[in-house]
């Protein structure tokens, strides 16, 4: 079974993240790039499926040159090869354009399954998986907390507020995962050393057959018009228990619509 894992490089959530004041896109120089956390779970799930069913795991990343670091890390975890979609024309693409561009890049690959994290820690739109499935005309199995493959059938547990749904489809399919699905492995030194020998193919927009009139900041369907830093956290409310602390706490929660 050949699996493609979509890996996005995002700014490290442990550092201060900024948008660029020029065009309201991410300032990639302001912080270190790391693999989007949920994509690490996607890589792990793909590796587990490969260990069970055989085949190859390919990393597909759309991003600027420095995304190479994250690709190497993904290969160090045990993926077999990578495709790096990199083109200045893609700069500033929104979630829909990203899904379109990735669908074109996937068109150059043979795969049975596409796995990705259910959202990224930077933009957090959470729609790339669904949009990508639409572009590809494939079934979408989103928010998977468990994945089982049996022949051509794939079954997932979709995490919900009340527990989970069981959703089934036929391969090929697109699966997005949530973090409870597994525990991503740390790269071993052997794999770190092997990673540098693994093939990373660079793909331009033209190579992928992407219509550049449809991608990039100027052609985006959505626009970030303004941004502001998160307000500093307000001081907490102290409730002194004078025999009615429980009632006051309940009133507070009701007022905030928590109960």
């Amino acid at each position: 079974m050949n699996i493609v894992v979509l890996v996005k490089q995002v700014p490290d959530t442990a550092t201060e993240r900024k948008l660029s004041s020029d065009d309201n896109t991410l300032d990639r120089a302001a912080s270190d790039g790391v693999i989007n956390e949920l994509d690490e779970y996607a890589i792990e799930e793909a590796l587990l499926l490969k260990e069970k069913h055989g085949g190859e795991v390919t990393i597909l990343t759309m991003g600027p040159d420095q995304a190479t670091d994250s690709i190497r890390k993904a290969l160090s975890m045990g993926a077999d090869k990578a495709v790096h979609l990199v083109d200045d024309a893609l700069h500033g693409s929104d979630a829909l354009q990203t899904a379109y561009a990735l669908s074109k890049a996937l068109g150059t690959l043979e795969f049975d399954l596409v796995v990705l994290g259910s959202e990224s820690t930077d933009a957090r739109t959470g729609i790339v998986g669904a949009a990508l499935a639409e572009y590809l005309g494939l079934p979408q199995l989103t928010l998977a907390g468990k994945v089982d493959v049996d022949g051509q059938a794939i079954r997932i547990q979709r995490a919900t507020d009340y527990g989970h749904d069981v959703v089934e489809a036929q391969l090929p399919a697109v699966v997005s995962v949530v973090e409870k699905i597994n525990e991503p492995r740390y790269p071993s030194f052997k794999l770190i050393m092997q990673a540098k020998k693994k093939p990373v193919a660079k793909l331009s927009a033209a190579d992928a057959g992407i219509d550049t009139a449809l991608v990039g900041l100027g052609n985006a369907a959505t626009e970030t018009v303004d941004f502001a830093p998160a307000p500093p956290r307000a001081a907490g409310t102290v409730i002194k228990d004078e025999g009615d602390g429980g009632v006051k706490a309940a009133d507070f929660l009701a007022e905030k619509k928590f109960v």
Partner: peptide, 14 residues
């Protein structure tokens, strides 16, 4: 080397 540095960072994170 790049590999030693990658190992160092991996163990640091661990």
């Amino acid at each position: 080397s790049a590999e030693h540095e990658e190992l160092r960072r991996t163990v640091e994170e661990f």
